[in-house]
């Protein structure tokens, strides 16, 4: 039998060994982990314009993603009033690097609305010119977020990509997995004919206004409504910026 001292000694040695191994491994792989996270986020941004460019963002190699970001994408960050922020100001908001790609949209959602900052990606490659905006909202179980690409006119949607933290596969997760559903958003306008902001509404039972409504997902009403709400609120945040861009 083991005495109490022996037990304590055994457990101490065991846990310190384990802690040593795991912390070495964690620090050793930290760089790779961060790179992977960054590439994953960049692929999600490219996914919003992948149909227009004829690429498959999820299967692009790392170098190519970096290449597109370096050569064709201009990153900007705005505040809620539509003023362009300098990298130093973005860093002051708590994002090291100060670029739009460093901004965590889910973290921003926890701040009071007036203090949030908005990342924007301006894609320009030859005739292809898109503005990609990031939005965040609530699904059924947890947060959902997405990147919305607008055409040159700043009101027509060129492509969307959504992601979620914990929606049900086959139901709510369809907002990410169902390509046909995401395709519906292409060509929709976020303003009505009179020029009032509408966002894109997701309608249970089928869209009635083809210019700014899309069909919902059966079995995933709450998640689909969440997408509509997210687009309406999230894109409206960009309203001041878009107004300024349209004037200039």
């Amino acid at each position: 039998m083991h005495s109490t001292n022996q037990i304590i000694r055994f457990v101490l040695i065991m846990t310190s060994l384990v802690a040593l191994v795991l912390s070495l491994m964690y620090t050793g792989l930290k760089g790779t982990h961060e790179l992977n996270e960054a590439i994953y986020a960049k692929k999600a941004i490219l996914a919003a314009v992948q149909n227009k460019l004829g690429i498959d963002a999820s299967s692009l190699p790392v170098e190519e993603v970096q290449e597109i970001f370096d050569s064709s994408i201009k990153q900007e960050v705005y505040d809620m009033k539509g003023n362009l922020l300098t990298p130093a100001q973005v860093e002051a908001s708590g994002y090291k690097g100060g670029l739009a790609e460093n901004v965590d949209i889910n973290k921003e959602a926890k701040k009071p609305e007036s203090e949030r900052i908005l990342p924007m990606y301006k894609f320009k490659d030859g005739d292809n010119e898109f503005t990609i905006l990031s939005v965040q909202g609530k699904g059924l179980w947890d947060v959902i977020w997405g990147n919305i690409a607008l055409e040159k006119d700043m009101k027509t949607i060129a492509g969307v990509d959504f992601d979620h933290k914990g929606e049900t596969p086959g139901l709510g997760a369809e907002i990410k997995d169902n390509k046909a559903w995401k395709k519906q958003f292409v060509g929709k306008s976020i303003y009505d004919a009179a020029g009032n902001f509408t966002g894109v509404a997701v309608i249970k039972g089928g869209a009635k206004e083809p210019t700014w409504q899309v069909d919902g997902i059966s079995g995933a009403t709450i998640t689909a409504d969440g997408v509509g709400e997210m687009l309406k609120r999230g894109l409206n945040y960009y309203g001041p910026v878009l107004d300024k861009m349209k004037k200039s």
Binding site: V18, V21, L22, M25, T32, H33, N36, E37, I39
Partner: peptide
Amino acid sequence: IVQLIIIATLVTIVELTLKAVAFD
């Protein structure tokens, strides 16, 4: 508890490795 520590360590190793080599 010792068994659990062994399992948890190995699972963490798997998790860290996957995050590095098979992020998707």
